[in-house]
Design a protein around this nucleic acid. Structure first.
Lengths: 205, 205
DNA sequence: AGATAAAAATGAATACACTCATTTTTGTTG
DNA sequence: CAACAAAAATGAGTGTATTCATTTTTATCT
């Protein structure tokens, strides 16, 4: 790892960026995303309104900035939780249980993020999202791979498509949960049901 | 079907609502969602700005209103297209091909909708979305049911969860397509791959 | 019909995201 | 260090979604 050469200018920028993200996080959690104004964030971070827009092209971009850091940790935590279980289905449920818990801790924020993720326009943001998705897929693929060596999953099963299938089910139901179509209990049960179905396959007699 | 007793008042409201939705549809298609102002729509519909907000609590709600009508037709069309094919996987691909085509016709609009669907706050809108989802699930369940009688799908497979699994894969990849992570070709291939995987099951050797 | 109440419509006023011409800070060169 | 150029920061200005006190329309009485 080459240590980045941080000029005073870049150091200041990074520090400022950190203050803005921290301020955004605090206000989003306290007042909610909608009720938080850019002015709020600017004041708390000790910068002007215009400066905030130098670091985030739109208010919603702040969501991605806030979540990117946090989510990376949550995904790791989810993977560790999964490893404590034996069967693949239990592992997957444990994995997404951690992620769902995280979202449940701050529903308004999770809802705002969910919307933002519906369509990401900015290339920079897209990279950040892709990175998080990859982090999820990688962990899921590792769980499936391990299940293969245990004989739970057939050797021919394609890792990445399987991981995406699994994530797709989780994601759809997470949306249902966040929008209030279903409660957390039903969410948990439906997700498990889908994982079992995917493992068995529709074709099975 | 009991004909609704339409008082003059309700008649006017319905007509006005129709004008607003038509105006919104036209402007969204022509200028795009963002660039369309409520004033545009109000002028074209021959009402005031305030009146538009009487029929849609927020600008984004107009998206749901516009799509609800259109989508109902598209889903029917998708189902009819599916019936022209023999195997379940081909049927599913044909089904979602029609829906994806519809979205592809107006990408900016589809993207705006995708975001809106990320979290639906209003109860009325939620009902509209639920109705569309049910329409999808019902058709998919019918296809699976038919596949059961052909022996393609095991008798024990739960219809609705299977339909949701199928839709979840489609929906995740549609998001990827609309956001520009993948192109249409890749979208088609990935969706098919997922359907095959779901049919076979991960457990299969 | 005229009077009255309820519903619907109005558009000026408000609040806030976002822009951009100007100013300030930082880095570089002689 | 002074002078200059490039980068960053600023905040008043702009446009538009949304609100709400007021006005207009519709329905229901006597």
């Amino acid at each position: 790892m080459a240590q980045a050469p941080l000029s005073r200018r870049d150091q200041n920028k990074l520090e400022k960026r950190g203050r803005i993200i921290a301020a955004a996080r605090a206000f989003f959690a306290q007042k909610g995303f909608e009720a938080t104004t850019i002015q709020d964030i600017a004041d708390a971070a000790g910068v002007s309104v215009g400066t905030v827009f130098l670091y985030a092209k739109a208010k919603e971009d702040l969501l991605i900035l806030v979540f990117h850091d946090e989510m990376t940790g949550v995904i790791d935590q989810a993977y560790r939780a999964a490893l404590k279980h034996a069967g693949l289905v239990d592992q997957l449920c444990a994995f997404f249980d951690v992620e769902a818990d995280y979202h449940e801790r701050d529903l308004p924020l999770a809802r705002a993020l969910m919307r933002k993720l519906g369509y990401v326009d900015n290339a920079e943001q897209r990279d950040a999202v892709t990175e998080l998705m990859s982090a999820n897929y990688t962990r899921l693929a590792m769980l499936i791979e391990a299940a293969k060596t245990r004989g739970e999953v057939g050797a021919a099963a394609p890792l990445l498509p399987a991981a995406r299938s699994i994530f797709a089910c989780y994601y759809l139901h997470l949306g249902g949960f966040l929008s209030g179509y279903i409660d957390r209990d039903r969410f948990d049960r439906m997700v498990r049901e889908h994982f079992e179905l995917l493992l068995k396959g529709l074709g099975a007699g």
